[in-house]
Computed example of a mutant assay.
Amino acid sequence: MSSSSIHPWGPVRWAENGAVRLAYDRFTEGSDGEPLLLATGLGANRHWIPDGLCHLLAAHGFAVARYDQRDGGDSTHLPPTATRNPISALFAKRGEAYTAEDMADDAAVVMDALGWSSAHLLGVSLGGAVAQRVALRHPDRVRTLITMAAVPGDVSGLRTMRFIRMGTLAKFARLKFPDTPEGAVAAGLAVSRLVASPNHPFDEEAAREAAARNVDSGMHDQQAQSRQIGAQWHGPPISAVTRPTLVLHGADDPLIKPAASRAIASRIPGARLMLLPRVGHEFPERSWESVAAAIRSLADATSGAHR
């Protein structure tokens, strides 16, 4: 077994957007491929995107990099704010810490640090909304846009309710675990169970092992999640996106309704919608090959525009 398969990621590096430092790293396989940047979800660090999927993306010709959103993983965590609950932050009239524009700029800063003038951009959950905003704010930096398990990037507050299963979000808000490594593992397992497809057996042993490998305190840091989810967008509507777009969504998503993906696909000109059967708010192995192939197909259809 090669050393790259044991340690498939390069060293952690940092990009800077003002006072915010953003942790990122690169997949060691496929480094000469087309740039593909991965943006993660609410509270989640960059390790939640499976290495197996990244291996397939590299095999399909992509140079893969990933980063931690501000207030997530190894990136800068902002000072506490008055809003301490993600649900109340979701419905606040204004963000208390930073804007959605700031988070979109973070992705561009990471590309700068990577030496990429442009990249394919895959965002998952909150990262999907961020990716849509990057395509609006920095269209010249985005080769193709792939949004997964996300709400439309231009909705906020009460308008978001139609797309979110509030019962599941309430369960997230009720998760309470000690601020210890053991608490982080327990939180990771609980979150994995909540987001899994209800129509596919949940592999608790595998989920526990994955949580133990990735001890992510962001899974139960409601302060950080509140700051992320409370970041408000002040830019144009997603109907102004001009980049080739693929909209992915789990057909069984227990957190974000598939209606969200249909709304995104209907409003972004020329977007393709791909519902993933027996997939929840997750990236299970059974979906990797079809997802990687669809991303490759989207890139091939637009090849030459950024060469």
Results as ranks from 00 to 15, higher is better:
M1F: 14
W9R: 06
P11L: 12
V12N: 05
Y24G: 01
P35R: 07
L42T: 09
N45H: 14
I49W: 15
P79Y: 05
P79D: 09
T83S: 14
R84S: 04
S88R: 15
L90C: 04
Y98P: 03
D105K: 11
A119Q: 05
L122T: 01
G123L: 01
S125F: 12
G127P: 01
A131R: 04
R141S: 01
L145I: 03
T147D: 01
T147G: 00
A149H: 01
I164D: 00
I164Q: 07
T168F: 11
K171Q: 15
A173S: 14
L175A: 14
F177D: 05
T180W: 05
G183N: 06
G183Q: 09
V185W: 00
L194S: 07
E205V: 15
E209G: 07
D221E: 07
D221T: 02
Q225I: 05
Q225T: 08
R227A: 02
Q232T: 07
H234Q: 07
H234M: 08
P236C: 01
A251R: 07
D252G: 03
K257E: 11
A263F: 01
A265T: 04
I268E: 02
I268R: 03
G270F: 14
L275Y: 11
L276G: 05
E285T: 14
S287W: 02
G304W: 12
